[in-house]
Design a protein around this nucleic acid. Sequence first.
DNA 1: AATTTATTGCAACAATGCTGCAAATAATAT
DNA 2: ATATTATTTGCAGCATTGTTGCAATAAATT
Lengths: 135, 135
Amino acid sequence: MKPIDILNKHDMKRTSCREGIIEVVMTASQALSENEIRERLAGNYDRTTFYRSFKTLEEHNIIHKIVVNNQLVKYALNNSVTHKNEHTHFFCNKCQSVKCMDDVPVQKYQLPDGYSDNKTEVLIKGTCANCKTEE
Amino acid sequence: MKPIDILNKHDMKRTSCREGIIEVVMTASQALSENEIRERLAGNYDRTTFYRSFKTLEEHNIIHKIVVNNQLVKYALNNSVTHKNEHTHFFCNKCQSVKCMDDVPVQKYQLPDGYSDNKTEVLIKGTCANCKTEE
DNA sequence: AATTTATTGCAACAATGCTGCAAATAATAT
DNA sequence: ATATTATTTGCAGCATTGTTGCAATAAATT
């Protein structure tokens, strides 16, 4: 599915910024930061527009945000085909890359009485396959 | 163990800021943000000193940081008695509180070939026992 | 082509966090 | 007790991430 079709499906206005972000995130093999997305984008957009686009796209479940730490945020496409609903994320301490681990589902956690869970975020930090071989 | 003893055990200078932070975090039932800690502190410290103190205390494994999102960071004591090594964290969407789930250990995740894990962070978001009863 | 509605860009602001440097403080030796 | 040394603090300044209000602009609809 093309970026335009995705926007149409969600009854969203087809602006070039949104189209561009979807395009970039769609073709990326890993989650990308705001700057990484901007670099790959044709047009030049204001930072505010960027943030608002991310927010809207996230609210419509087109992309999701991965907060590595308070200084590093990345975005990835919600692909219902390849990305299982609740997958884990992997962060490589060496190359700082973030990958959606589509084949590593989030496990169920048993909470104490009274607590109810809504969403569980799992971030696995370590060394990725690519950096491992380069040692 | 008192804050001073903890600092001595780690061969750290006993400054009032460090002592205060440990004191506050020690007596808290939940993880606290920078501001929450500052409010509970007697002395008035510069923000830089605060951050540096957090950093040093974290490096010495006295406290640990919980990044809820890029706008909300909380700190909690590393109590080897009550806090198991790898525990999960719970974030309440209603009251914004963060709690160390000492009895809910982080589960093991099987990664694809080539990947090696170092640390796994699990943040469970939902409604806490306190907010549940208030509905 | 005109209207309506949503989006953009700009300016300003807030929060978190880092760095260099001089002043102050803690631990140690005298 | 006092002097010395090493660490820590406070300040100024800066970077990054993110938000808000408002006027200008662009998209979808009539």
